[in-house]
């Protein structure tokens, strides 16, 4: 059975059910992306990136595989072939499709995926980037709880050259949250899907607070852990440091940066740095300080209208 959904404004037809994505409600145009069940080669010929899980060929084709779950072939920014090693409609197969595979697909289309979560504040997109475990999803969940809409969780796709851009393209209306975060926010687990059958991590719907239209990117905060109370602060990065920091924020940077020439990469990152200030945000980890952090960050943004922050 084929399903038609929307992802970052793209029309996606899929052999796999994709309940994470909103149904396509647009016109009858040809699909932008096709997700098919089929054969995936065991390896790529002469890969330029040959990682244990992720490989890339000279033409930008990528192969990604999680043993026991599925192998994925991503071609030309328009076709994903999935060879599932378990029931194709299990969430486990989808989690990696909407993670690494999704990021690679966007990059193949010339979009820039950042390792960041993104929320709407005063009609602008504010991205929170950082390494794994820095608290991107948790902070997005805290903003959601305080009434803000969310554009993306973990992968933030930026259309740098769009009119009025750089624009953040909304991804999908759910957060992935660990059990402990859900307990801290008193979120019920009933009826929620586990993101992997074996993990205490749940797909939490955004319940109407999904920002479905693109928004201009207004600021990027790179999350850093403050180990000492004296470190709590947001530090504005100068343009050179901002570009360097953005380079590290590229999603799956080791592989995806290869899809962009250094000159092209520099051009895109400079455009972002010109349009949106970058900060290094030192914050205390843990769930106790989140409300105060949300209030402080929201207060930093201009309320509405006017120029960019």
């Amino acid at each position: 059975m084929t399903t038609v959904r929307i992802l970052c404004g793209l029309k996606v037809v899929s052999d796999l059910p994709l309940p994470d994505l909103p149904p396509w409600t647009g016109d009858g145009r040809a699909p932008d992306v096709a997700i098919r069940l089929g054969a995936v080669p065991d390896r790529l010929d002469a890969p330029v990136v040959a990682g244990p899980l992720l490989q890339m060929g000279t033409d930008g084709t990528c192969r990604f595989a999680i043993p026991g779950v599925a192998a994925y072939l991503v071609e030309g920014g328009h076709t994903v072939t999935v060879r599932a090693e378990m029931a194709p409609d299990s969430t486990d197969v989808r989690v990696f499709l909407l993670g690494t595979v999704f990021g690679v697909l966007c990059a193949q289309r010339g979009l820039l995926p950042l390792h960041a979560s993104c929320v709407a504040i005063g009609g602008r997109a504010i991205a929170f980037s950082g390494v794994s475990g820095a608290g991107k999803s948790t902070l997005a969940a805290a903003f959601h709880r305080h009434g803000h809409s969310v554009l993306s969780d973990d992968v933030t796709v930026v259309d740098v050259e769009a009119p009025g851009g750089p624009l953040v393209l909304p991804s999908f209306p759910r957060l992935k949250l660990w059990d402990d975060v859900m307990s801290a926010f008193a979120l019920p687990r009933e009826g929620l899907e586990r993101s992997r059958a074996a993990l205490d991590k749940f797909h939490v719907p955004l319940d109407g607070r999904f920002q479905a239209e693109p928004l201009p990117l207004a600021a990027i905060y790179r999350l850093e852990e403050a180990r000492l109370p004296s470190q709590d602060r947001a530090e504005r990065l100068n343009p050179v440091t901002a570009v360097q920091s953005l380079e590290e924020d590229i999603y799956r940077c080791r592989t995806i940066q290869r899809l962009l020439s250094p000159a092209r990469r520099f051009h895109l990152l400079t455009r972002i740095a010109d349009a949106a200030p970058s900060y290094r945000l030192w914050r205390r980890m843990g769930l106790g300080d989140l409300d105060a952090q949300v209030a402080a960050l929201a207060a930093r943004q201009p309320s509405d209208g006017g120029g960019r922050a």
């Binding site: 992720l54 999680i66 990696f96 794994s132 475990g133 660990w178 799956r252 940077c253 080791r254």
Partner: peptide
């Protein structure tokens, strides 16, 4: 370090089981 693991493999370790 989680960030190193994730970057080298191109996967989110928080999507993997402890055994994986």
């Amino acid at each position: 370090l989680r960030a190193v693991f994730d970057e080298v493999l191109g996967v989110e370790s928080s999507d993997l089981s402890a055994a994986e």
